[in-house]
Design a protein around this nucleic acid. Structure first.
Lengths: 350, 350
DNA sequence: TACGTTCCTGAAAACCTTTTCGGTCTTCCG
DNA sequence: CGGAAGACCGAAAAGGTTTTCAGGAACGTA
């Protein structure tokens, strides 16, 4: 049974609009006025069932599809939002984007994607264009999880995702890196590991600091020392994972677990452990961070890791934005909890 | 020196619109009619310089930004295009998207991003929504580089990128996999390799077949046999790369180069070569395919690979689309040539 | 038959901009 | 000084839809 597109909604079963029929055409074909046609298609009550059926049939015949531009003009709502990102190629904006796309039903809201490529000027360009297009709201995804400058006062609600706004009056949604670090170490401890080291990336990243802090907190609670005497900060690369692991093993050959600050680093760690004939996970357990599938699943053995729940973050951003479009927007920083993905690189110690 | 937004263009130096001023407001403030205001801001000639200045000043004061919806309604051109993809998480749509975004100047055209997640119904949903939004054109990015069903006749031009349309009346832009395979083997031959093997992915992928064909063609030209007696088809994974390499070495320990059908596979190949104490590139050269940075750059040693030039493909798609919006669209399949990225995993044999 | 309800329908305004076309004012030439 | 040409400006229509409000038809009741 096939219905006609009504207002914003649309019926996937109907034929695709091949022409450019307008409401006027539908009305003429149905023998009613434009006003009646509109009401019939939008489920307004003041139209007789028989008339409605006539209109619907006409709309189907012409495969009418309402002009959203005109609707937006009159309702003062375009049904679009802008997603302004700074690192499309990076792996962070994509899951967020998917989560957001998911949360806005496809026929309710469409997403304009803009990549500023880290360039401030380009960001302003995009912003101008989006506002000109009368987007109903904006999601800003930063390149790295550290505070970024606020866009200031805009005529539409803005949500900062992944990278929080520097202005506490804005609403930001970020991942809980402290909790993630804690969760990683907790998992290792539960599996009987006692000599846990931590190799991570660029110390200028708040995320690196936060994950380390979470890890140290959890160790402290358990009265355990950090193996290797220090947090091994470096770079977010496999090469650093390899180098740090070598140094670490030299200083402290007795470790039984390594918490890597990213899956990339974890790959380097695994590589050197193999070289040194240390069995994973039986002798040394390894846990990564990010759940970057291509790296984690293909690792040898597949990598236990912390997933930052970025899709969830995107979904949440969309929901908050949606709520804010009518009502008023909150402020401050909200965090999204991480999730442990267990694979084979960690296992209970016998 | 600061100019006001004029028509479609906008000035990044100007203040961001904080309010919702309309042309009427600008006209009133400037003491002219709406028509004159419009003409002044759009660089129409029939307005005195002095008047124009007045209007521009007023527009600046109100930080006016024209309502693109209204413009679209009247010009019958929304200044938007839809990008309909099936694998956002995959690595293929992103570069294409970036190329396309790049080619459409940000203030000329904005991109609606829709991910159908491989679901046909969802694709039709998105399509309906996009047509309702009166996009000026459509780029369809398939999930894998094999022919996909055509969307049929639509009121806007459509370009199929990466995965060609099954209907030859459509215009498709794809990468040249045969050329890529040829280029990879050519590179190895030029570096003095004579015993070249090929390990690749799922044989049901046209891309796997095409790359293999290109490789074999080039070998034949040189009168060289394929080392390992066969093309090693399997899966697009590191694990297969590892497994195939082991089998290959058993059958033919004397190879001096391996062409991997993807960077993922190449990583598996490298892994086993290390285990077997075969030096790369001095004893065995390895070349990958895709130039997937995270895998290729971090490899040990960094991986020479074939880049499919996907950004270029996206840029080209945007250009073709742009041209088609006024004129008429071509048809058939156009290919984009690949590019060799030389890193350290291949080197001349002494 | 006249009148008050109830139910439907349609005319028209509104959203914001672009563009055409007619009108006014200046200027210059004869 | 009269008139033509040119420069500049504004009224109005158009684009496609939603929504308000007034009017018409059918019906029941007195």
């Amino acid at each position: 049974m096939s219905r006609v597109p009504t207002g914003r909604q649309s019926d996937p079963d109907g034929p695709l609009p091949t022409g450019r029929a307008t409401l006027r055409d539908v009305a003429k074909l149905a023998g009613v006025s434009i006003a009646t046609a509109s009401k019939a298609l939008n489920d307004q009550p003041q139209v007789r069932a028989e008339t409605r059926a006539k209109v619907i049939r006409a709309a189907e015949q012409l495969s009418f599809s309402p002009n959203t531009l005109a609707q937006g003009l009159i309702t003062q709502r375009s049904g679009t939002v802008g997603l302004l990102t700074s690192d499309l190629e990076g792996r962070f904006s994509i899951p967020i984007l998917m989560g957001a796309e998911d949360a806005f039903g496809s026929d309710q809201t469409s997403v304009f994607l803009c990549d500023a490529r880290g360039d401030n000027l380009r960001e302003r360009h995009h912003l101008r264009a989006l506002l000109s297009r009368r987007v109903d709201g904006l999601i800003v995804v930063g390149a790295r999880p550290d505070a970024r400058p606020s866009l200031g006062d805009l005529p539409v609600p803005v949500i900062y995702a992944y990278a929080p706004s520097a202005d506490p009056a804005d609403l930001s949604l970020v991942t809980d890196n402290v909790g993630g670090g804690r969760m990683a170490v907790d998992h290792l401890i539960r599996h009987g590991r006692r000599r846990i080291a931590h190799i991570t990336g660029d110390p200028s990243y708040g995320a690196a600091q936060d994950r380390a802090r979470g890890a140290l907190d959890r160790l402290a609670e358990e009265g355990l020392p950090l193996a290797g005497d220090q947090v091994w900060f470096g770079a977010w690369s496999e090469a650093w994972g390899r180098g740090a692991t070598r140094m670490l093993l030299q200083r402290d050959p007795d470790i039984d677990a390594i918490f890597a600050g990213s899956d990339e680093i974890a790959r380097g760690v695994l590589d050197v452990l193999h070289q040194e004939k240390l069995a994973v996970p039986t002798q040394v357990a390894v846990i990564g961070f990010d759940n970057w599938n291509i790296l984690a699943v293909n690792a040898r053995p597949p990598l236990t890791t912390i997933d930052m729940n970025l899709e969830e973050l995107g979904r949440l951003a969309a929901q908050r934005l949606f709520a804010a479009i009518d009502g008023t927007l909150g402020s401050g920083i909200e965090t999204v909890g991480p999730r442990l993905i267990t694979r084979e690189s960690t296992a209970p110690l016998d």
